[in-house]
């Protein structure tokens, strides 16, 4: 197992390098003098000179890439001019908030989605199946940001059950119950679409598996139907569900950008949007590379989980 994890980590290195190259190339598309363009409205002569020194912006493209890469590897993501603090510090603060939101959302959509899909398959064409299929259709069709706004109207404004936005109450708050209270709506709004997609996929994966010969064998052995479905079939279906969870995690992470805007969640998505609007390019660059790298790592974890689940995968 350890060797397998190591192997996967090593194979991730080219992907990570590729990510930095792509981000670097995109940023190199910025027209005009790089330092002035990167700094935008923060382009005081002082700042321009500092940036030129840090990133070697007067040097050729390839050399610039390696300077930038080298800096990042030593933990130097540059300095955010709009916030006047190191980019990495800001990223780490913000990423924590995103991780809480996206993480909880991901767990929610995985559990709810698989459950709904399995129940739907087990009761194919029954009432539960139809109800779930209908709900899923609605769920995957509502844009998450609109859903979030409607939830605020209903649960925060009309029913007054939950706080409108933010991560903690401004006065008092700050403890776990306060966090959970603030987390419920954004996490659900963020999970909605992914739940729908996972439910659909789980349903069809289950139906596929329930046709397999080994399910007939389980029935021929006299295994009770409940156990056939929730044991034998689900276990086998998980093999095709897990990779989809990995893909959906990417969508949850993407959707977090919208949800953070709607709920004023102090995460990295909102940081990125703010940084783009303020043209704080270094902050955007660092944030994108950081989150993409985190996602690559997460996918390795998914692969490892898959290899634990499926003994046929050579580790």
């Amino acid at each position: 197992m350890g060797a397998y994890i190591l192997k996967r980590l090593i194979s991730a290195i080219p992907v990570l390098l590729g990510i930095t190259v792509i981000v670097f190339l995109i940023m190199a598309m910025i027209p005009g003098d790089p330092a002035t363009a990167i700094l935008g409205s923060y382009a005081t002569p002082d700042n321009v000179e500092k940036l030129n020194r840090d990133l070697g912006l007067d040097k050729p493209l390839v050399q610039r890439y390696f300077i930038w890469l080298g800096n990042m590897l030593t933990g130097d993501f540059g300095r955010s001019f709009s916030l006047n603090r190191p980019v990495l510090d800001e990223i780490l603060d913000r990423f924590q908030a995103t991780l809480i939101l996206a993480g909880v959302s991901f767990v929610l959509c995985s559990i709810l989605g698989i459950l709904a899909g399995v129940v739907s398959a087990a009761r194919q064409y029954g009432f539960a199946d139809k109800a779930i299929t209908f709900t899923v259709l609605i769920g995957i069709s509502i844009p998450s940001f609109f859903l979030g706004m409607m939830m605020i109207l209903l649960f925060a404004v009309n029913l007054r059950w939950l706080p409108v936005s933010g991560m903690y109450a401004i006065y008092g708050g700050g403890d776990l119950p306060d966090l959970i209270n603030h987390l419920i709506m954004p996490a659900l709004a963020l999970a909605a679409v992914a739940t729908g997609v996972i439910a659909r996929l789980s349903r069809s994966a289950m139906l596929e598996v329930l046709r397999q010969d080994f399910i007939r064998t389980a029935r021929a052995k006299g295994v009770p139907e409940r156990r056939v479905i929730y044991g034998h079939a689900l276990r086998a279906a998980m093999v095709s569900i897990i990779p989809v969870l990995g893909i959906q995690a990417g969508f949850v992470l993407s959707g977090a950008v919208y949800i953070e805007m709607v709920f004023q969640w102090p995460g990295i998505g909102r940081m990125l949007v703010d940084a783009i609007l303020k043209r704080d390019i270094l902050l955007v660059q660092g944030g994108v590379v950081f989150v993409a790298a985190a996602y690559v790592m997460f996918n390795i974890a998914v692969d490892v989980a898959q290899s634990v689940l499926d003994p046929r995968i050579k580790t």
Partner: peptide, 13 residues
Amino acid sequence: AFPYILLALAIVA
């Protein structure tokens, strides 16, 4: 390998 929105954000940036 990118979550799609990161790439979109980078391009818009």
